[in-house]
Lab assay of single mutants.
Amino acid sequence: NKFNKEMRNAYWEILLLPNLNEQQKRAFIRSLYDDPSQSANLLAEAKKLNDAQA
């Protein structure tokens, strides 16, 4: 399933972002589970926040 693969990839990438705190990571991951079809958008948002907090 395409969404499962995308979601899994986004999950691990979000977990490994160094500048997000645990609460932020949990919020993004919760959103991933709520709507896996938004994986790419959520990952992009997480990366943007990660860069902003660098």
Rank of each mutant, 00 (worst) to 15 (best):
N1F: 01
F3I: 14
N4I: 07
N4Q: 06
K5D: 04
K5V: 02
K5Y: 03
E6P: 03
E6H: 03
E6Y: 03
E6R: 02
M7N: 01
M7Y: 04
R8W: 15
N9R: 15
N9K: 15
Y11P: 01
Y11I: 13
Y11E: 14
W12Y: 09
E13M: 15
E13S: 15
I14G: 01
L15A: 04
L15N: 07
L16R: 15
L16K: 15
L16S: 11
L17H: 12
P18E: 07
N19M: 08
N19E: 07
L20N: 00
L20S: 00
N21I: 13
N21Q: 10
E22V: 10
Q23Y: 14
Q24P: 00
Q24V: 09
Q24I: 07
K25D: 00
K25Y: 04
K25A: 04
K25G: 01
R26G: 03
R26N: 03
A27Y: 14
F28H: 02
F28V: 02
F28P: 00
F28S: 02
I29L: 06
I29N: 01
R30I: 05
R30Y: 13
S31N: 09
S31G: 08
L32G: 01
Y33S: 02
Y33E: 02
Y33N: 02
Y33D: 01
D34M: 14
D34Q: 13
D34K: 14
D34L: 13
D35H: 08
P36Q: 05
S37I: 06
Q38P: 02
Q38W: 09
Q38A: 10
S39L: 13
S39P: 10
S39N: 04
N41V: 09
L42T: 13
L42H: 12
L42N: 04
L43E: 03
L43Q: 08
L43I: 05
A44S: 11
A44W: 14
E45D: 11
E45V: 13
A46R: 00
K47A: 05
K47E: 03
K48T: 10
N50E: 04
N50T: 02
N50Y: 02
N50A: 09
D51V: 13
D51K: 09
D51Y: 13
D51N: 13
A52K: 11
A52R: 11
A52M: 09
A52Y: 13
Q53G: 11
Q53K: 02
Q53S: 09
A54T: 11
A54R: 02
